[in-house]
Amino acid sequence: MSMATTAPTRRPRVNLAVIAPIVALIVLILIGMALNPNFLSYANITNVLARSAFIGIIAIGMTFVITAGGLDLSVGSMAAFVAGLMILVMNMLTESMGGGLPVILIGIALALFTGLAAGFVNGILITRAGIEAFILTLGTMGIYRSLVTWLADGGTLSLGYEMRELYRPVYYDGILGISWPIIVFAVLAILGEIVMRHTAFGRHCAAIGSNEKVARYSSVAVLRVRLMTYVLLGTLVGIAVVMYVPRLGSASATTGLLWELEAIAAVIIGGTLLKGGFGRVWGTVVGVLILSLIGNLLNLTDFVSPYLNGAIQGVVIILAVVLQRNTGAAR
């Protein structure tokens, strides 16, 4: 049967697949401008970008995981767990050490380390124990979610008042009027794009997702690269949490709910293939912004009944993906 597939079918070179997400983003911005004059206000733009940062930072990591043919459903719960643990430990330290900057630094280090460790656990079980990524991370998703509920005793973990005031600027302040979450998100996005496009690691991720056997026969350390994608994702979850906690200073069982699906949706809207083999970080950034903007637009207008918010999001996600598939990036 192999002969049939070798028949060359010319695919258009300048394809909409590349620009479809950008077109969608521009259309959304135009709609926003038409519907509400405040849409382009400094405050609104800053709000949207800053709130995109958490899922955006996680989605950058998810891009690598998906490109390498993997999946991680646990990131939302993982974020909640890391946030919960961070708050709990910071509160304990405040009692014993009397608060101050060191507590915040320890909290940040703890969040980064816990994220990294959680990603490592996911990765090692997927690569060494050979458990299907979908099932494994579905399992750890439940585990982290239960752990944070347990840590919070079913309620909400809140950072002590003093610490909250001290830590608060990490979300709300910035330089030159650009808040820290936006800066961190932008820097990570640029780094991510460079790593994906111009390093051996990024190339190896795409090769593994495209055909794991070919990668192995080409002496790519398949298992190690796979593991690294999950560790990277876990670490980015840690960074997202470091940005998230100062916002409301609390974590509960509902923190990070459905973040994993939003991150995956953003990655796919951005043009990364769900089955792996091709990924682009800039696309993911666009995807995250599209998702955030839809929510923002719906809140800024009475255009549709709030009951239909989910439907509008669903339609836009499907449209963005259909646009790409139809224009030839079927592979």
Partner: peptide, 15 residues
């Protein structure tokens, strides 16, 4: 096991 069919010549050559 030899080539990534959806990738370019360059990417395959140097993989």
């Amino acid at each position: 096991a030899g080539l990534l069919l959806d990738k370019t010549l360059r990417e395959n050559l140097t993989l």
